[in-house]
Design a protein around this nucleic acid. Structure first.
Lengths: 227, 227, 227, 227
DNA sequence: CATGAATGAGAATTCATTCAT
DNA sequence: GATGAATGAATTCTCATTCAT
């Protein structure tokens, strides 16, 4: 009541430390959930699995997440948001960098993001469909926006005479499919290679850059007019 | 016990008619399950949904299939077998038709098969992962054999100087990804267009052929050396 | 398919026997639930208690009732309906029997009904409030209709010069309260007396009639003008 | 340890201030609990509801009350004690005031007490049954003592020739029932009327006196010999 | 063969209470 | 004293599978 500045400050610090603590715990649970979900899949993962792996009590879980669905959501949302922002950064202005360079950069960024979030990406690709109607819609929207973006780029390219005549929608799907499959593959297979003890979860960016180049080349040479 | 030939024959006929009857029922249930699974997804489909749609009793279901998992298996196995055989028919012999022609033909056949089994294909693409370890292995093997095949074709093409230098594994994944995404898209989006009353589930082969050409072109022009 | 009349008939019989069986089981569960609820109260009764007492499996319970709330509902609804119809039978027509006689008869019927359903009545009086908003509303409506009826009777009596000047609403509450308390008392205390082995759940109608007379006399002599 | 008189005194003062503080807090929580319980009912009220409304921490609650059950107990106990003392004050001595006058006064006091504790009374009437065996016993005892008292009064009245021949036990239940129902009704319905902003929780004693008179008249004219 | 009532292991979620800070 | 994060027993409900008729 009669608290002076000092008291207020101390209280604030206490509160913010508690908040930090809370965020820390929440993240710890999220990290565990990410691992477990990516290993067992959403449906075969029970709350029991989660709390056992996290070493917390049943009730504690619900202190941080309102439901199994909610933690799954939290997991994927963060990735989707990251990807959206990654993708959005493609500029279409007049004095923007050459589109091709931007594509390379964009794919690099996307692959970086996905590879840095390999487990979540795997969950996204393998488990996210069929959770429930809301989530399906969210995914549909996400992929839809991606496809729209790619398709628009293709149409632009066609207008600029850079891209050969083709069905832009189908081609966009091919690009997306190539990307998805590459990610799934790298996320699973590459992981086996690069996640070795000693390597400390570091990602082989060298190799990744190479794969990115290849992926883009695969797509572009199908879209570009033959020289 | 004391059955004469005639009796035996009659019994055989009875047995075989019973067998045919059994097969007929089984198929009917499979057909229903295919539809329901493709509409609701594996996890959201209950045995109740299945038997209600099929108009059979709970116990009857288990006369034909040993479990929910088993009918799902049966559904996808038939498609996988079909696809395997479709794909296998690519000849690599000395006096086989030109490889490019074969590719076109193969993709045509694959797309035909997949589109004729749109519902199952959709299940395969959306629900098949995460059922259980055995199934995951089966899928892994299936896609693995597909990838191996594509990769081998790419390597062959490289040796023959038809395919530009590239990472054959990654490229194979791109091809597979393009194929998957195209099928998923056509399975969902195109279905809305072509499954109209009056059209009676006929498939628009014309359009399909076009999409197949586009898909192949997308892939090939990424693989071929620029002319 | 090619079933003749006989077959049809047999099937019908089978179906109706199954239905009867089902109804029989359902009733058995209801009977058990009535007993358990009346002994332990709604909140302290778990589904576990119910199924253990009924000697059925957890799933079986949900075959007959969709929820704990639902079986409680079923229990009380039947009583409420019974009471409503019992009460409704009071005629107010021109050449109906004298109102006083009808009152006696009505109270007799109500007490009979309640005493024959002692356990349910006890549940109604002790547990029904606070289950949920819907149920509270249902109870409120039920008692409301009862009160309205009593109040109307009082007003009529006043107009006919039979009932002394008084606040009809408060008086109606007193009548209802007297009735409730009597039922609660008889339901609990009397039960101890009359439910003895050997007596076979028979109800001491003699005593009951006496209590009914007393109750009515209590109320009426408070409402009648002093002679 | 080595505390002198002065120190002791100061400490005492400190202690007693702390005690007062404690009592103050405790009362504040009780007040909140009374309101919440009366609004939502015992079972639908969670500790969360209580501490949130009281603006205290979870642990703090348990510093003042050992359990949810305990605070409920405390709430009702105070009312029960109040009522007991209110009722007890009926004198049966030789030169006591005329019994009828005492009844009027007693009912007035009871109604005053109950109406002044409308919320608690409502809890008593609606939620108190079915909490647990101990509490049921306590209630049973309370109402039992009330009934005994009423019954004794009736018997006295009969001996004095004031009360008509009747079953004293049943009649006592009717009196109690009338009282309960009146209180429940006034607690709910009247509250809507008299708890208006501006009136500041004042109770319409005028109207209340009227209801008391009516209630007594209802009961007495049923008990008195017809004039 | 066909049936569908019965089963019970499991799943998610709640909430009164405790205890380290 | 005060706090609120942590706890875990208890509870309701689901649903794939079995089995007597």
């Amino acid at each position: 009541m009669a608290a002076g500045k000092a008291e207020k400050g101390r209280e604030d610090r206490r509160v913010s430390r508690a908040q930090a603590q809370r965020e820390f715990r929440r993240r710890a649970v999220l990290d565990v959930a990410r691992r477990v979900f990516s290993e067992k899949g959403y449906h075969k993962t029970s709350i029991d699995d989660l709390i056992e792996s996290a070493g917390i009590a049943r009730g504690t879980f619900y202190l941080y997440f309102s439901s199994k669905r909610a933690i799954f959501d939290a997991l994927l949302d963060s990735l989707l948001v990251m990807l959206q922002s990654t993708v959005r950064r493609i500029e279409t202005g007049p004095d923007a960098p050459p589109p091709v360079d931007q594509m390379y950069a964009a794919v690099d960024r996307i692959l970086d993001t996905l590879l840095e979030n390999r487990e979540t990406a795997r969950i996204l690709l393998r488990d996210a469909v069929g959770i429930d109607a809301d989530f399906d819609q969210k995914l549909h929207d996400f992929y839809g926006s991606l496809l729209t973006m790619i398709e628009r780029a293709i149409r632009n390219g066609q207008e600029m005479g850079l891209v050969r005549p083709c069905d832009p929608t189908l081609s966009a799907h091919c690009v997306l499919g190539s990307l998805k499959e590459t990610v799934d593959w790298t996320g699973v297979e590459v992981t086996k290679i690069i996640d070795k003890p000693g390597r400390k979860k570091g990602i082989d960016r060298e190799r990744l850059r190479g794969l990115g180049r290849e992926l883009i080349t695969f797509c572009l040479q199908g879209l570009f007019k033959a020289a």
